[in-house]
Design a protein around this nucleic acid. Sequence first.
DNA 1: ATCATTGCAAACTGTTTGCATCAAG
DNA 2: CTTGATGCAAACAGTTTGCAATGAT
Lengths: 147, 147
Amino acid sequence: MEDPSQIIQKLQTCGLRPSAPRKTLLAYLMGCDHHPTPYELLEGLKLSGHPISIATLYQNLQVLSEAGLIRKFVDADGTARYDANTSAHHHLHCTACGRILDLDLSDELASALVALGTTANWQVQKIQLDLEGLCERCQIRLSALQD
Amino acid sequence: MEDPSQIIQKLQTCGLRPSAPRKTLLAYLMGCDHHPTPYELLEGLKLSGHPISIATLYQNLQVLSEAGLIRKFVDADGTARYDANTSAHHHLHCTACGRILDLDLSDELASALVALGTTANWQVQKIQLDLEGLCERCQIRLSALQD
DNA sequence: ATCATTGCAAACTGTTTGCATCAAG
DNA sequence: CTTGATGCAAACAGTTTGCAATGAT
């Protein structure tokens, strides 16, 4: 969990009132190593002892996204997911356990991809990359099952 | 529009009855150069003079996807889209006009991306790449507006 | 004649909105 | 005290399902 005063400051810097639900939600997301769905957030916050209403949850996911404090993306199944890491834009997605890891792209690779668009006369502004497959754990787990 | 008898054959090869709605839907999708949403399909088929019910539409989008005759994907906004091109898996997405074009990836680039996962001990099965930006038309249109 | 497919209507999931209450500045 | 945020409940969009009627083999 993050330092409470830092959370408050982050919110105020963006011109947002540090209400209880907002602080809880932002702190929770910053302490997450995965990329929870709205439903997972609702349940997680409930379990953490700081439940918030579903309307407030959705309102704040939108507000915090617009403020740039969190990021929304849609996975290959069409499920909305959120994280507090606003830098990494790519993902490793395990098709077996559903885990989604952040992934960084080298500059060379990124420009090679941008070039793909340029040759089609497109001006590429954002690369969205999703590598789907099996994480280490699931590879081991599944190969063990085959024996 | 495709040859009607070819459409029928494609369906029968997959063990699907060539009912009127199925033939219309598959032919329509094969004649599409974009990637329509279910709603766009519903409207498009209505306009083409061969309306089908929404339940039948969704049922068949699923059946045809499972048969491998069409492909479903979810765009960055979370909207479901379908196309009859089952080979290309990558897209150029214009953020201004919403147009989505298919994109092919060179083998070198593809293996460079797979390697990214490998270094993280993942076994990559599918690369999903989405380049967002401005298409040629919209670049011209928008720069003209600025004058 | 049999069995898959259609299409209506109703159900369901995920998300948004109206609005009275409440809390932060 | 003023203004923005909460949270219930109701509305909404996209999708799925139950089921009687229909159409293909």
